[in-house]
Design a protein around this nucleic acid. Structure first.
Lengths: 190, 190
DNA sequence: TAATATGTTGAATATAAATTCAATGAATTG
DNA sequence: CAATTCATTGAATTTATATTCAACATATTA
């Protein structure tokens, strides 16, 4: 244990943060390794000492990002509407205060929708069954009368589209005013 | 006027449609000219006979897309809430039925948020003052009591984020069920 | 139909960016 | 403090893709 090992970990993290920032603002393909290297003030060669490839760096970010949905779905789901209220509030709160979280949210949705995402990343993303789980919860909420009628998948889509879009705006222009989470919940509230 | 001139225009349109599809699904940087050429079954060389560069092709799509916001803002704005209701309904209706429109919507928002967009495109997008105009309308709606209180810019952001996110989903997976526009309007309704 | 203009291709060429590598300097360890 | 390992650089090398071009084909026109 010396100056080195801690420095190494620190740089690893710095590269991830810089990669996250650039990938979200420019997209995976348009982000050059040299952009990332410049952003952390190291040579391009050295960056490859830390990450095997641009793709692996991206992949590591996605792996970190996957813990987000997991954490969301770990919350108490006994009352569906309360779950969606708490989730929206927590996510917008984080996204408005912690740029890393907001950017991570953007990264995940970009990756989700992008056909050009590297195959290993797409594979990882297939684990993410948040939408399906939420649609089931929507139905449950409709049954107990707290969530409005309508196609549960469509309700889920509208709810997440709004959250995702707001996070994107927060991540990319940190000065925009953050909407109230309650407004977004009104999409699904009966 | 002969077989040629009409054929030429037809191909021009085909290339635009293929470009739109690929740009929205993969992003500008990740879309290869050869992808587009393959999609319209022509050689890469010929594509350059129709468009000076990949950037110019993209730029032409953005120019077409800019007519969308213009058309939206041309609608009757005397009653703000009614304006937002009609707008949401019209856009979702189009997006659900016409893939070109849905994709165009995605293209525009991608371009808007992407730092890596070509400079001429960014310049074109600066014309688009839809958000500012909408925020003003939100205030007006608050004054006449039809729109909920809150930061007008934040209300605008939430409203458009939801619409945009839904359009993205519709464009990229045409089989998803379309949310009701009224649900989205409930974000801003008093 | 001959001359001309336009469409089309596939094979160069140019360029940009990812990745590798040999060499050097700095920390660690015995 | 000598040997060794790791960090770092800048300069190749490789690879991918945009763009150009010379040649040929097909339509237009006089």
């Amino acid at each position: 244990m010396g100056v080195r090992s801690e420095q190494k970990e620190k740089r690893h993290q710095e590269i991830l943060a810089a990669g996250l920032d650039l990938f979200t603002r420019k997209g995976f393909a348009a982000t050059k390794i040299s952009d990332i290297a410049k952003s952390v003030k190291m040579s391009v060669g050295l960056l490859f000492h830390y990450f095997e490839s641009k793709e692996k760096l991206y992949e590591e970010l996605i792996k970190i990002g996957l813990s987000g949905p997991k954490m969301v779905m770990a919350a108490d789901q006994s009352d569906p509407l309360a779950f969606f209220e708490a989730t929206a509030k927590k996510i917008l709160g984080y996204a408005a205060s912690d740029p890393f979280v907001a950017k991570m949210f953007v990264l995940m949705s970009q990756a989700q929708y992008n056909d050009a995402a590297p195959e290993p990343v797409k594979e990882l993303l297939r684990q993410n069954d948040t939408y399906e789980r939420c649609a089931l919860l929507m139905e449950k909420g409709q049954q107990n009368g707290t969530i409005r009628p309508g196609n549960p998948a469509a309700l889920t889509l509208a709810y997440w589209a709004a959250i995702q879009g707001v996070c994107e705006a927060l991540a990319l222009s940190p000065n925009v005013p953050c909407p109230e989470s309650e407004w977004i919940v009104d999409i699904i509230r009966r």
